[in-house]
């Protein structure tokens, strides 16, 4: 069988992905999550007299809880299939990846199950998040000094 001939035929029967509509949905759903986050910060600052930094920490904790809680109840994955990556890119997606991994391996025990596998997907974000923070922090230091 000839590989080039096969590629030509196979390309004729390729599934069409709805990349454009998926991007639009993700753009708006992700934006909605951001808007909700800003709303929470504003409420905490204006009605409960929180400092802005504290309010954003509480907002993040709230979204982590929501992401994990909905995953545990078993419907966060259904929400992702509707709202696409708009729910995976924010901190909700990070919480979702950790909770889903922990849930999958809970039957294998606290150490070999949850402990060894909880960071299976989230480990990437943590590792490369730290590396890029160090990298960009260094650039920031070299350009602007400590101030």
């Amino acid at each position: 069988m000839n590989k080039t001939q096969y590629e030509v035929i196979a390309n004729r029967h390729k599934a069409v992905e709805n990349k454009f509509s998926n991007s639009i949905i993700s753009f708006f759903s992700g934006g909605l999550v951001g808007l909700l986050g800003e709303g929470i910060i504003e409420i905490l600052c204006n009605y409960y007299s929180y400092a802005r930094d504290d309010a954003s920490t509480i907002m993040i904790v709230f979204f982590i809880f929501i992401g994990s809680f909905f995953t545990a109840l078993g419907f966060f994955d259904n929400l992702v299939s509707i709202f696409k990556c708009g729910l995976l890119i924010p901190i909700t997606g990070f919480a979702h990846s950790m909770t889903s991994s922990a849930m999958d391996y809970r039957k294998e025990g606290l150490i070999y199950g949850i402990g060894s596998n909880m960071f299976k997907l989230a480990g990437n974000v943590i590792l490369y998040g730290i590396i890029s923070a160090w990298f960009f922090g260094t650039i920031r230091y070299l350009i602007g000094g400590l101030t």
Binding site: K14, A15, N22, D77, L79, S81, K84, S101, D104
Partner: peptide
């Protein structure tokens, strides 16, 4: 899914193919 792809509750969008 658990063995070959992602955790079962993980809602990764799937390709049409």
């Amino acid at each position: 899914e658990k063995q070959f792809r992602y955790p079962t509750e993980y809602g990764i969008p799937r390709k049409n193919s």
